[in-house]
Amino acid sequence: MGIDQLYEAWSAIPAGDLTFWQDAYVKFYNAWFYQDRWMTYFKGLGTTIQVTVIALILGVVLGLLVATVCTAHDQQRRGHRNPLLGLANLICRIYVTVIRGTPMMVQLMIMGYVVFASSREKTMVAALALGINSGAYVAEIIRGGLMNLDPGQMEAGRSLGLGYVDTMRFIVIPQAFKAILPALGNEFIVLLKDTSLISVVAGKEIVYFAQAIITKTYEPMYPYLITAAMYLVLVLIFSWLQGKLERRLRQSDRR
């Protein structure tokens, strides 16, 4: 008997008369196969990936920018302070403080219902909000990496006559990047999972479609479990890629 016939046979029986496994089968069928519902999860998955990638790029660009400004500001020689850099630094500090000091969910709602209240492209608005949020954390991670590197590395580069930019580019940033990769990977996983929040502003990702199915079947268990499983698989794939990259960067550590 095929899966469809099995479903038809069992769903005709009143729920109270089914065995545990038969009942589970009917509910799962409703959550996944019925009217090709599985396709909507994958539609949501597509949005999740799309939003993650946009937010990731935005977050990294913003984070790099903010970290560069803050680090350059902190590393100025005494008596050589640049007022423009001071202003840029102030703006960056306020940005990081506000973003880190308010919940992700509240930021999403402010972006979705206040700043872009009239926008129809709520998914893009949500991606923007996530990117801005992620940027603040990425900035702090990058800044930590740059600050934690032995100052002797910067000194050695400069003592050879290399300029600040060259020393950063060839010596400091490659080493800092290697050091922050685990933290950065962690942040990206958090970002990936935070995309599940965008359903609050009607962003159409996996949770949104899972909830749509629940409103039809009145059965929350399987749609949510399927959602969880999809996120888990995404994170596993990402962690695997990160591990590969880390092993490659560890090349210079071999003894």
């Binding site: 590395q153 050695a156 060839f170 080493q175 210079s252």
Partner: peptide, 21 residues
């Protein structure tokens, strides 16, 4: 100063070689 430092070599207590190269 970058120009000047090109003519002054410096050796540090902790070597400060670039470990990534």
């Amino acid at each position: 100063i970058d120009q000047v430092r090109q003519h002054m070599g410096m050796v540090f207590q902790h070597f400060n070689l670039f470990p990534n190269m």
